[in-house]
Amino acid sequence: MNNLQSYIVLAACLFSIGFAVVVTKKNLVLMLMGAELMLNAVNINFVAFSKFDSVPEQGQVFSIFIMLIAAAEIAVALAIILKIREHYQSVNPDELTSLKN
């Protein structure tokens, strides 16, 4: 995998799978996992572009920031999902009708 196109195709496949999971799943935890897949696809793009850039540290620094944001997102989102499950006894977004008001 020495050319940029291979990395972009891999990232596009990961992003597509993550987007499909977010759109089709009926479980908040699985939707969160799909969002993480999309963030990992973005990380692959940043690192791939940094490999072919004159200043390779830029993409890698952005990738580290995305990993930090993803870790914070997981911590906050899982806490919210656990509170929702405790209150509604379900993590199915279709059953959470009182949140719509």
Rank of each mutant, 00 (worst) to 15 (best):
N2Q: 15
N3L: 05
N3R: 05
L4V: 07
L4R: 04
Q5H: 09
S6D: 13
S6P: 11
Y7W: 13
Y7H: 09
Y7M: 05
I8Y: 08
V9K: 07
A11I: 00
A12C: 10
S16N: 13
S16M: 11
I17A: 13
I17H: 05
G18Y: 01
G18C: 03
F19S: 09
A20Q: 11
V21T: 12
V21H: 02
V21A: 06
V23T: 15
T24H: 14
T24G: 13
K25H: 15
K26N: 15
K26P: 03
N27L: 04
N27Y: 01
M31V: 11
M31R: 05
E36I: 06
L37C: 14
N40E: 14
A41K: 01
N43L: 05
I44M: 01
I44L: 01
N45H: 03
N45K: 02
N45E: 06
F46N: 01
V47F: 01
A48T: 01
A48K: 00
F49T: 03
F49W: 06
S50F: 00
D53T: 02
V55Y: 07
P56D: 06
E57L: 09
Q58L: 07
Q60R: 06
Q60H: 12
V61L: 15
F65Q: 09
I66S: 04
I66V: 11
I66A: 03
L68M: 13
I69V: 12
I69M: 04
A70G: 08
A70I: 02
A70K: 07
A72M: 14
I74F: 14
I74V: 13
A75E: 07
L78H: 09
A79R: 10
I81E: 05
I81W: 03
K83Q: 09
K83M: 08
I84P: 01
R85Q: 14
E86H: 14
H87W: 12
S90D: 04
P93S: 11
L96Q: 09
L96I: 11
T97V: 14
L99G: 15
K100H: 12
N101C: 15
